[in-house]
């Protein structure tokens, strides 16, 4: 990689994207306990095959080891973490404070999210916060980074230097504002996007086309999100039970069409084929592979999708 690529932050992910490489990220869910070995073990499986590792923030509202501490463990082990932050559980004081905490360990990537509603998790009776929304969290990180200011206006000594990401779900409703919503996130300051899992490639392509028509693909790095199915049951569950997920019938049929013991293999094949097709879509700048509790399969997916070896940054 050339040394003269201009970046806004020391983020390795940013360097790789700005140098024009297809980036590969993945994610690890922290354990439901305090054993840091659990998170490091997952990271070790994928470290040579991805450019950065997202750590989820109490995903599906189930209480887990926190994203920030998990990211610190990764950083200290020499990996490149992406700190996922949801606005569900913390007010603006806690969010800014945690951003500084992450910055103190030179964690250089953040993904700003709303977070699943607590009704899905292990504490449905809990209060939620939503002091900011995800859009406003993006603005907050950019203010802290670019202006070196807190939301309250005071100066930050040694501001965070984070590459700022956001999520996009091309498949949620109402569809007509999905691209405007992307535009809004970019206007708020998002520099990279990781999408919801893509199974309906036609609908994704339509979304990308609308994004390209507005030139948005040149203003933000869009990483296409993928999750391999482990079974036909998982495909059906995602189709019917996970809000905002679009799994076409033919994909479910394909998974169901092979014997149970071969379904994991079929799921991986679908994932690899999808990456290969998505590589052809103008504006896709990389892939975010969310192999849920199946991290050991990420290296194979990356290799067979022709995304290995990873560039050095």
């Amino acid at each position: 990689m050339s040394a003269d690529v201009s970046t806004n932050t020391p983020s390795k992910l940013e360097k790789i994207l700005r140098a024009g490489h297809l980036a590969v990220t993945s994610e690890c869910g922290p354990p439901r306990g305090s054993d840091s070995a659990a998170i490091l073990k997952k990271a070790e499986m994928i470290k040579d095959h991805v450019d950065a590792i997202n750590i989820t923030d109490n995903q599906t509202s189930v209480t887990r080891l926190c994203s920030l501490a998990s990211c610190i463990h990764l950083k200290l082990a020499g990996y490149e973490p992406v700190l996922q932050m949801v606005v569900r559980d913390r007010n603006r004081i806690a969010l800014q404070s945690d951003l500084l905490g992450a910055a103190s360990f030179d964690i250089n990537n953040v993904l700003c999210l709303s977070g699943d509603h607590q009704a899905f998790g292990d504490n449905p009776q809990g209060q939620n916060v939503f002091d900011l929304d995800s859009m406003q969290l993006i603005q907050t990180v950019r203010l802290m980074r670019d202006d070196g200011k807190f939301l309250g206006g005071d100066e930050i000594k040694r501001p965070p230097r984070m590459f700022v990401g956001a999520a996009a779900n091309p498949f949620a409703d109402p569809f007509e504002i999905r691209v405007p919503r992307l535009a809004k996130k970019i206007a708020a300051g998002a520099e990279f996007i990781q999408t919801q899992c893509i199974y309906n490639l036609d609908k994704f392509k339509e979304w990308m086309k609308q994004a390209r028509d507005r030139g948005l693909h040149e203003k933000v790095f869009i990483l296409a999100g993928l999750t391999p199915f482990k079974s036909a049951g998982m495909a059906k569950y995602m189709k019917n039970r996970v809000p905002g997920m679009d799994v076409p019938d033919e994909v479910v049929k394909r998974m169901s069409g092979v014997p149970k013991e071969k379904q994991p293999e079929e799921g991986i094949k679908i994932c690899i084929e999808s990456i290969q097709r998505l590589k052809e879509v103008e504006g896709v700048k990389g892939f975010h592979i969310m192999a849920i509790e199946w991290e050991e399969k990420v290296p194979r997916i990356v290799e067979e999708a022709g995304l290995y070896p990873r560039p050095q940054a």
Binding site: R88, S114, G115, D116, H117, A119, N128, F130, D133, S134, M135, Q136, A167, A168, N169, A172, D173, P174, I177, P180, R181, K184, A188, Q196, P243, G244
Partner: peptide, 15 residues
């Protein structure tokens, strides 16, 4: 349910 000010979250489905 999340009192979002800038649009629907990714969980909005068929209204």
């Amino acid at each position: 349910a999340k009192r979002l000010f800038n649009g629907p979250c990714g969980g909005s489905s068929q209204g």
